[in-house]
Design a protein around this nucleic acid. Structure first.
Length: 470
RNA sequence: GGUCCCAUCGUCUAGAGGCCUAGGACGUAGCCCUCUCAAGGCUAAAACACGGGUUCGAAUCCCGUUGGGACCGCCA
């Protein structure tokens, strides 16, 4: 390895950071970290009408949430227009580019006609050999593509891909308004930033031969390419808004842990034997482009949910406590400034870790520990808070009232005495009590719930349930 | 329409010609555990798209078919 690896993630700020972008960023980041190289963030905002500051913030925030830290940037292409201009002038002077006076309306019309006739809608090169400027028109600048021979893209993932140059057309590198276009700036920037490996989605594979010719015209060495397969929605089409949540921010808000999310998307197109769960360090150690698959992957929310639950189980109660706080606030379970006893809070979380798949679910369960009052779910109330369970509830309440050592094992003993007295199964008393305590038919172990809720609130909740029945 | 890419259980994937009676994971079903729900454990159903080659031998190599996807902008 003679040369230091330099890679970049180059999103256009025309939307939030989506799944596919996040994975492209992740693979670039992993490649850089694995090879002790440099990871650069570059904002491709040459399309000024669609790019916004808000989206730039959203993208960097998404990356921060995933802990994908960059070493250089964010560079912004709008800050670099003079660089592109000078390269374009150079090409013009060397006869490798020319002014094109066709209007976008004319171009669009010709394109539609060609398509309608089933022909390839490529530019016919009519301005290529113009002797005189067309007066009254502001020209765009086109790059001259070779029309013969073939271009080979030697891709690290797809292998050798051969393109016929005859299908390439002279592409616009500078618009008539003077702004540069994507296929041009991407090359200039990758050259200027000394990018060694271009790792991006395979929707760019067809652009690559054009870019290779620009590299050549500029007299630069061509970087290595690695085209990542797409991530598709459940209907196997490209992931888009209609597939529901596609931005990383949405997953943050749904209560996913960033490490679980990263673990999920890294396995879309990459594998390391049979291993499913990886620490960040393992990812960096194992990651290799050779292990990236060629075929597109369908996004599967169920598996992400499972991974998230595994990450929750493996997290400490203290960390989960910090993570769940914003959700408790948002779900109205605690108020701003409300202070919870740390030890008590962690105990509660420990009982809920393995039954919460997301932080939203965890917060929701925490409600029955934290809230003063419990509103029983109507169905649960109907099924368990009735005449039949009334005597059990009364006996449990009375027994607990007499209990001083209010800890789970002692609470269990009081339940067993009620069970013995009525010759019933534990479930017959546990379920009504659960509904009284949590409002639901499922929860953490009932003795632990009672211990954590505490004697005072427990008695209140039982009394309330008894009152409901009577 | 043209060009390019891709093809193993429903989904993510392991698989570099014999270790494959095709492995793991999610999901699904059943059982165990059990105060509920989970978690955990065990078990089951579930795939090499199809057709030709090459080879002693093919999920693996080649060709074709079919199917899916991406791109063909003064978007990126």
């Amino acid at each position: 390895m003679a040369e230091k690896v330099r890679v970049r993630f180059a999103p256009s700020p025309t939307g939030l950071l989506h799944l596919g972008g996040a994975r492209t960023a992740l693979f670039n980041w992993l490649y850089a970290r694995h090879n002790k190289g440099t990871f650069i963030l570059r904002i491709e905002d040459t399309d000024r009408t669609r790019s916004t500051e808000e989206y730039i913030d959203a993208i960097t925030e998404g990356m921060k949430w995933l802990s994908l830290d960059w070493d250089e940037g964010p560079h912004r292409q709008t800050d670099r227009f003079s660089i592109y201009k000078s390269y374009a002038d150079k090409l013009l002077k060397e006869g490798k580019a020319y002014y094109c006076y066709c209007s976008s309306e004319e171009l669009e019309k010709r394109r539609q006609e060609a398509l309608a006739q089933g022909k390839s809608p490529k530019y016919d090169g009519r301005c290529r050999n113009l002797a005189e400027p067309v007066s009254g028109r502001i020209p765009a600048i086109r790059f001259i593509m070779p029309q013969e021979g073939e271009t080979v893209v030697d891709d690290l993932i797809k292998g050798k891909v051969i393109f016929d140059n005859a299908q390439l057309d002279d592409l616009i590198i500078i618009r008539s308004d003077g702004t540069p276009t994507y296929n041009f700036v991407v090359v200039v920037d990758d050259v200027d930033m000394e990018i060694t490996h271009v790792i991006r989605g395979d929707d760019h594979l067809n652009n690559t031969p054009k870019q290779i010719h620009i590299y050549k015209a500029l007299g630069y060495r061509i970087p290595a390419f690695a085209h990542l397969p797409m991530i598709l929605g459940p209907d196997k089409t490209r992931l888009s808004k209609r597939h529901g949540a596609t931005s990383v921010t949405a997953y943050k808000e749904m209560g996913y842990l960033p490490d679980a999310f990263v673990n999920y998307i890294v396995r879309l197109g990459w594998a390391h034997g049979d291993q499913e769960i990886f620490t960040r360090d393992e990812l960096i150690e194992y990651f290799s482009l050779e292990d990236v698959g060629k075929s597109a992957a369908v996004f599967n929310p169920e598996k992400l949910l499972w991974l998230n639950s595994q990450y929750i189980i493996d997290s400490t109660a203290e960390r989960l406590g910090d993570l769940v706080m914003p959700f408790l606030l948002k779900q109205g379970i605690i108020k701003e400034g409300q202070i919870l006893d740390k030890e008590w809070f962690s105990r509660g979380i420990r009982t809920l870790k393995e039954r919460s798949r997301t932080l939203v679910e965890l917060a929701d369960s925490l409600r029955y520990y934290i809230s003063e009052e419990i509103e029983p779910d109507p169905k649960a109330k109907e099924k368990f808070l009735n005449e039949r369970s009334l005597p059990y509830l009364i006996d449990v309440k009375e027994a607990l009232k007499r209990l001083d050592n209010f800890i789970a094992p002692e609470i269990e003993k009081t339940f067993m005495s009620v069970v013995k007295k009525h010759r019933i199964k534990l479930g017959e008393v546990a379920q009504p009590v659960r509904v009284a305590m949590t409002g639901k038919t499922e929860s953490a172990g009932i003795f632990e719930v009672i211990e954590i809720v505490g004697k005072e609130k427990t008695l209140k909740r039982l009394e309330k349930a008894i009152k409901i029945i009577e």
